[in-house]
Write a protein that binds this DNA or RNA. Sequence first.
DNA 1: TAGTGGTCTAGACCACGTA
DNA 2: ACGTGGTCTAGACCACTAA
Lengths: 227, 227
Amino acid sequence: MLAGWEDIRAEVLRRIRAHDWRPGDTIPTEEALALEFGVARATVNRALRELAEEGVLERRRKAGTRVALHPVRRATLDIPLTRLEIEGRGQAYSYRLLSEEMASPPPAVAARLGLPQGAQMLHLVCLHLADDRPAVLEDRWLNPETLKVQPDFHLVSANEWLLANVPYTTGDISLSAANATADEARLLDLPPGSALFIIDRTTWDRDHPVTCVRLAHVPGFRMRTTV
Amino acid sequence: MLAGWEDIRAEVLRRIRAHDWRPGDTIPTEEALALEFGVARATVNRALRELAEEGVLERRRKAGTRVALHPVRRATLDIPLTRLEIEGRGQAYSYRLLSEEMASPPPAVAARLGLPQGAQMLHLVCLHLADDRPAVLEDRWLNPETLKVQPDFHLVSANEWLLANVPYTTGDISLSAANATADEARLLDLPPGSALFIIDRTTWDRDHPVTCVRLAHVPGFRMRTTV
DNA sequence: TAGTGGTCTAGACCACGTA
DNA sequence: ACGTGGTCTAGACCACTAA
């Protein structure tokens, strides 16, 4: 036997895939399964909890545990610092601050951060290079109220400074593709219209907006994961 | 007090962000923390395990628990069926099989699946539409050995059929951006060179290769997540 | 080989939400 | 009201691995 929680998880998954339990069905209670498999309820709980986190099961108190109707695969993406990502590929990392100024953000940015239209924010544009070739163009709007001290963004990238100094609790990430504008193409040394991989990220410290950043990655960039 | 595992998790996170415990530091053992917080070791274990899964801590038997050196954010992406995704936006879903033939896959596909160069595979090209406008172009290679029966892919999309009939255990996913080729642009009714969001997916059933698919999404497509 | 995390148990109480 | 999952406890044994 040797039924650990991973064995229980595998057996439940097997029954779902074999259609013993079909999408929408309520499966037996933790207590019943614990009895069947001859393990403690906590062991069954661990197995079913993992499957629920993966999106395979849906659990509600009193209502019981059901096989999820919509088979959603859930993948976990690692989102590293640009510097670490480049260094991880064995390339030399460098970084250039292209511009730094107080300005009024575009309406879309102000709206996403929940700030009034006219608010002044710190606007940074910088370039991340791999082996001295442009890799990522970063366009960032910073809420100046979250900056107690004003670091020198020539020396340290905004991302790394924020990570170390402004712990945030929540954030949105959006992944998309876009054709490079003329400016982007020039700065990234690409033909105009090249397909860029865009990561848009907005972060809050509790209820206080912190930053809104767009990272435009040159063609060849990939995010990988396993399910 | 009322220290549940979420409270422990929050307090550990607070200490890390306050630099009480710095990246690379070894933090106290589960036993010590359980004593300090006045809870059972299992409660501390749950809290630290969650933080390890999020990439904040690194745990090894005997060596102890350390604050992760490289602050990697880990985001979970939901990867729904194309049909459900379109219907979820309130649009009408439809689907067209454009071609279906046995052929020899390009070397890159054969290599990724670990099949010999000359192997014959089933090649499907199909189009997913939202409100009768092209949304996703699917280019799929199927290992015929995994198909016990040959379904009619005019009626059911390969993805949904596979999901219901070929349970797979492992899979790779890769996200990238690419300019539309002339063919892709024509099929998707886009200007040539449009930036497409590409999801490449390879799946195995244990050690048996099942399928390798490229989903090209029209501009405007986004994947979102929260961290 | 010894210290640390990983897991299991048997029991208990509680929170939630359906009926 | 009551059934179900969510969590906690105190103790135990095991697995891994650094010293």
